[in-house]
Nucleic acid binder design. Structure first.
Length: 275
DNA sequence: ATTGAAGCCTGTCCGC
DNA sequence: TGCGGACAGGCTTCAA
């Protein structure tokens, strides 16, 4: 479900709602979602901890405590909300985890497909333990550098679609934005990555910055089930150029947008504009 | 070391 | 209306 712009929107929302509140009690209704930690240990570590702030890196949502970092990955369907105990913003059947907060409200996690995960590590070495130290830069604020992306692309035999989805290359791009970025950069998703020219690498950097920053400004893309905290919908779906537009006319050249599986993911592109 | 495919789960949509 | 199959915004693990 959510990619960098959606997770950023959720992080900003949650930070406004729960920063400086403490967790009084924890209930987990689907233990497998507690990842790489033992459930009782997890509960012990978050109990009576004050949430200092909520932030994100790429698709990873992070709750910072004094000594711990709690990392939530929403995968396809994960959703957070803050509400009174008896009120559910999302389908109550999908409630997987809830924290009682010191102001009497509840911080709740819902996940229909049970793909999402949550884990907790000591702050000192959470990057190594969680594997987040392997993530590439967020494609924002003129990052990555040309040299960085060129080095990553030079010897890669993977398809470009897979390359831009690789979180160790660029962090935070998912299928929707990958489709949109490659369209904006006029690059065919089935090209081999090492065939990228310098000019095309620069185009990927510029397109990824522009698209993700615009999507953040619009609070993300709302299609299928995605809503940010407490049911707010994003607006970037109105600016999609190729994603979900199978057989519709390309806004640039008028030919039909193609959909096919590339690198295992539903891929939309214009075979005239992208080459 | 890379790359591709399967697996994790459930809900929704489409065609018969 | 009911049923089966395809598909969904992601990641990890396993096999080649």
């Amino acid at each position: 479900m959510p990619e960098l712009p959606e997770v950023r929107t959720v992080a900003v929302f949650l930070n406004n709602k729960v920063a400086n509140l403490s967790i009084l009690n924890t209930e987990c209704f689907f233990e497998k979602m507690i990842w790489r930690n033992e459930v009782n240990e997890f509960k012990k570590e978050v109990s009576n901890q004050k949430i200092l702030r909520v932030l994100n890196y790429g698709k990873y949502l992070m709750f910072e405590f004094k000594d711990w970092m709690m990392i939530s990955h929403l995968r396809m369907e994960g959703k957070w909300s803050v509400s009174p105990k008896e009120i559910d913003i999302y389908n109550k059947n999908h409630l997987r985890l809830q924290f009682e907060l010191s102001n009497g409200e509840y911080l709740k996690y819902y996940d229909s497909r049970k793909f999402g995960t949550i884990e907790i590590w000591e702050k000192d070495d959470y990057l190594e333990l969680s594997g987040m130290n392997k993530l590439g830069p967020e494609p924002l604020n003129s990052k990555p550098s040309f040299k960085y992306l060129k080095d990553k692309a030079t010897n890669s035999n993977s398809l470009i679609k897979a390359f831009v989805l690789d979180q160790s290359v660029l962090c935070g791009i998912g299928n929707i934005y990958a489709n949109e970025i490659l369209f904006a950069a006029n690059i065919h998703p089935e090209r081999i990555t090492k065939s990228l020219t310098d000019k095309e690498i620069i185009k990927i950097i510029k397109a990824s910055n522009k698209i993700l920053e615009r999507a953040i400004a619009l609070k993300g893309t709302s299609i299928h089930s995605y809503k940010s905290g407490n049911g707010e919908v994003g607006q970037f779906q109105h600016e999609l150029k190729v994603h979900l537009r199978r057989d519709e006319e390309c806004f640039v050249c008028g030919s039909k947008i193609v959909k096919k599986q590339v690198a295992g993911r539903g891929t939309y592109f214009c075979k005239i504009c992208q080459h």
